[in-house]
Amino acid sequence: MKTLDLLHRWIGGVIGLILAVLGFSGALLLHKDAWILLPHASDVQVQGTGVIAATVERIMADPATRPEMITFAGPDFGLNRLRFADGTGAYTDQAGNLVTRWNSQWERPELWLFDLHHHLFAGDTGETVIGVAAIAGLFFVISGILLWTRTRKTFEFRLVPKRISRPAILRHHRDLGVVAAPLLILAFLTGAILVFRPMAALILGPTAPAQIDASLKAPKAPVVRLAAKHDWRAIIEEARIRFTDAEIRSLSVPRQGSGLITLRMKKSDEWLPNGRTTLWFAADNDRLVKARDASRLPEAVKIYNMLYPLHAAKVGGLSYRLIMTFAGLALGLLGTLTTWSFWFPRKGAARSVSRLAGMQR
C-alpha cells in the first residue's frame, strides 16, 4: 500500500493540473448550447427537406465563398455552423442568413474551450497528452478506491474541504474521489478509447479497432475536382429518399485529397449528435457513390459510436448532463487541490518537517 500511495501522490502531483483543466473545461462544454447567446440560437430545429435544400443552395451559391462544411442546427441549438478552408467560421440561422462570423477561434469562447479540452491548444501532441492523462486517471481512481478503504470509517462527503490545510484537503480528496469514482471511470475510459483507438480492444475485443477503422472509412473513389455548380437540392432529396426518418446533420465538400461530397445523417436510434449514417457523392457530377446505414454497422462499432455521447452527455437529457457536470467539477477540484497541496505546502507544515528532520540528526 505504501508504494501504491507513493505512486498515487507523485503521479497526481505531476498531472493533477491537466486533469483539473479537463474537468473544468468539460463541465463548461456540457452546457455550451445554453450559454452561446446569439440571435436565433434558441430557434426550434427545422428539418424540412425543402428548407434545408434552399439553405444549402443559398450558402453554397458562390464557389469563391462557400464553406467546406455545414453543420446543421440541432434540437438544442438553432444555428447552422459553417467552417471555411482558411480556418475561419460563421453561424447562420436556419434560412442561411449570417448571424456572426469569426476569423480566429479566440473570438468564440466555445471554440477555444473545445480546443483546450480536446488538444490543450497543442494539436495532435496535446491530444496524446490528454489520452495519457486519461489512462493515468483510471489508475488514480482504482488506486484511490483501494487507499480509501483504509480510512473508510471516517468517510464524510463534502463538496469542498473544511479548511485549506493539507490534512483537510487529503480527507476531502479521498471522500469526494470515492463518490465520483464511477463517473470518473466512465469519463476516463471513454476519453482514453476516443484518443487511442487500440484501447477499444480492451473493452470491445481484439478485432474492434480494425472493425472501427473499416466501418468509418470513406469509400474509395477517384480524386476529382469539385465542380463549380452542384444540384444541392437533388443531393438532399436523395438522402431523404434513402433514409426517410433520419435528420440531416452535416454536409462537407472534398478535402485532403478526397473526391467526395459527404452528407451525414442521424437516425432515431443513434446517439451521436451528428450520426454515422453517411452518403458520399462524386464531387464532379453529384453521383451517389455509396450510402452507409449506421444501424447495419458491426456491434462493436455501434458501441464505439456510443462512447462520445456518453463522455459528452449528448444523451440522457438535462439529468445526465448535471450528473456529468458534477463529475467534471469534482475532477477539477480534485486536480486543483491535489496540485496545490503537493507542490505548495503550508509554511508551518514545512517548518515542522524541518524541525523533525533536525531532531532526528
Rank of each mutant, 00 (worst) to 15 (best):
P63W: 07
F281M: 00
T262D: 09
P182D: 10
R152K: 12
V195E: 02
V301L: 08
R242V: 15
Q94V: 11
N305P: 03
W343Q: 06
I193V: 15
G23Q: 05
S319F: 13
I59L: 09
V223P: 00
E156A: 15
D86P: 00
H118T: 15
A200E: 08
G74T: 14
D286G: 09
R108I: 15
T154R: 09
E107M: 12
A168M: 04
L216Y: 04
Q360Y: 09
I70G: 01
H117D: 08
D231R: 02
T151G: 01
R351G: 07
M1I: 13
G316T: 06
N80V: 12
G48I: 11
V160Q: 00
G257C: 09
R66N: 09
L170K: 04
F77L: 08
N285V: 12
E299S: 12
H40T: 08
D5P: 00
P209G: 12
I169R: 01
L146I: 15
T278F: 02
K153V: 14
P39G: 13
T100M: 10
I70Y: 03
R233V: 14
G317V: 09
R292D: 09
V224Y: 00
R321E: 15
E247Y: 08
T88K: 05
L146C: 05
R255Q: 14
P298N: 07
L17Y: 05
